[in-house]
Design a protein around this nucleic acid. Structure first.
Lengths: 249, 249
DNA sequence: CCTCTCTTCCACAGATCTATGGATAACAGA
DNA sequence: TCTGTTATCCATAGATCTGTGGAAGAGAGG
């Protein structure tokens, strides 16, 4: 009995973990989760963004909710979903990292669009902090405006990729541009950089995206009014990766 | 065409990540992966450890291999499986962390067996390093011997839980015991500590287990002969969590 | 109370996954 | 070559998951 009950509990544990696995077994759910790590969204917006019918998206979201990976907030007739905590984003990040590390296919896809592991081209977080402080760089957030509003690098300018061409004139051609987006699997920043370079501007991508920036313990601004300032704090809590807070609790 | 191909690639990306998700959607596969993060094993051993029939275990392992999360090595008529790289263990760790953080059920199960989040009881890695260096503590690896052989904390003594009672006499009653096992979801160390305390010994669990120790960038010994030494290096590469090497590459 | 919008629930058909026993393949040793 | 061991492959039946359209909730605003 003792022994058996022990084995049962162990089985239960893995059963619970598989509840989480169930969420990421479907590509669209991974996509939804990735989106929710950027900003909360209504069901309709999520369905639209992931290319799903409303009822299908809702069903997927229910699965994610049962696994407690997302939470909801009601506003009038609309329901907003959000990632249920930092651990969720961390998990999604780990999944993406694992994919890039182990699945050659992932790297191929990324390479095919110029976002490949030519990471020599990428700016590190530490370097960005350094240069942003001295003011000789423009930090560009090329994600959709809602995501910028939900959290962005302090001092970054919001310029969604879709408006980039139209608003090129707003950029100081004398400064190098550092663009960032959702993360290493996101295509927005690489594409923006390609566009900028084609126009003769100096531009590079930031390594990773906002979630990793946040997970590194670096400051994140949420004031949607702040769109042009240069307010990276004079001294940051720490200097880059090492700043990551203790993983547990 | 441009636009469409872009969306296709994005879908492909998530499709690839879902390949990984497919592995952790089945409780037994999570269990197998967890085991493989401790040490390589033959199919037979894995089936035995997870309580599966051979053919079923083999089928699960094929799924894991297709997702590139495990690799094999042949030795005569036997095939040994192992986790395909550190990122895999990191992912499993992230999954476990997420489970503990978001699923109340996980914490309940852990609490029911005394392994709950009474982490006040646990010894941190930094503290262990400190005290091991000054020699006033016995580090006990209570996992099966194969796992100890595949990698353990330098200076730790291998004393699998199943032999604990029989070999209690080998422990110096004057020193406090710090026991560790596979990780925060593993029951071995908490049980060992309970047993030791029942015998009047001072004993505590290490926070987390060997995978986390390794992921923190701390030294891991693999020499199976080293079973009683006290050879934690005088100075470690760094001091605990911060030592974690850069997450990517 | 009625209507409109956004979301969830429900039922069902098609697809996918899982466990299992039996057959097959790879290898070691006589 | 023959035998025994270990692992993989295969076919199948039962279970689970997905996408879908239609119906039902839940608020907001007349």
């Amino acid at each position: 009995m003792e022994e058996r009950s022990q084995a049962d509990r162990r089985a239960d544990l893995y059963e619970q973990l598989a509840r989480i696995g169930k969420v990421v077994v479907h590509p669209k759910r991974v996509e939804l989760l990735d989106l929710l790590c950027q900003a909360e969204r209504s069901v309709e917006a999520l369905a639209e963004a992931a290319g799903l019918k409303l009822t299908t998206a809702s069903a997927h979201l229910q699965v994610m909710r049962q696994a407690r990976l997302v939470e909801t907030r009601r506003e009038g007739t609309r329901v907003y979903y959000r990632a249920a905590g930092e651990e969720v984003c961390r998990f999604v990040t780990a999944l993406g990292d694992l994919g890039r590390a182990r699945l050659a296919e992932v790297d191929q896809i990324l390479r095919a669009i110029g976002a490949g592991s030519d990471s020599a081209e990428r700016v590190t977080r530490a370097e960005l902090l350094e240069r942003a402080r001295s003011g000789d760089v423009v930090v560009l957030d090329v994600r959709p405006a809602e995501e910028y509003a939900a959290g962005h690098i302090p001092g970054a300018i919001s310029l969604p990729l879709e408006h980039l061409e139209a608003r090129l004139g707003e950029l100081d051609p004398g400064l190098e541009v550092v663009a960032y987006c959702r993360g290493p699997l996101c295509l927005l920043a690489p594409e923006a950089v390609a566009t900028l370079r084609a126009r003769g501007l100096r531009a590079r991508c930031l390594e990773d995206g906002l979630p990793e920036w946040r997970q590194a313990g670096l400051p994140v601004a949420t004031d949607p009014a702040d769109r042009s300032g240069r307010d990276i704090p004079a001294r940051t809590p720490a200097d880059g990766h090492e700043a990551r807070p203790d993983r547990r609790r």
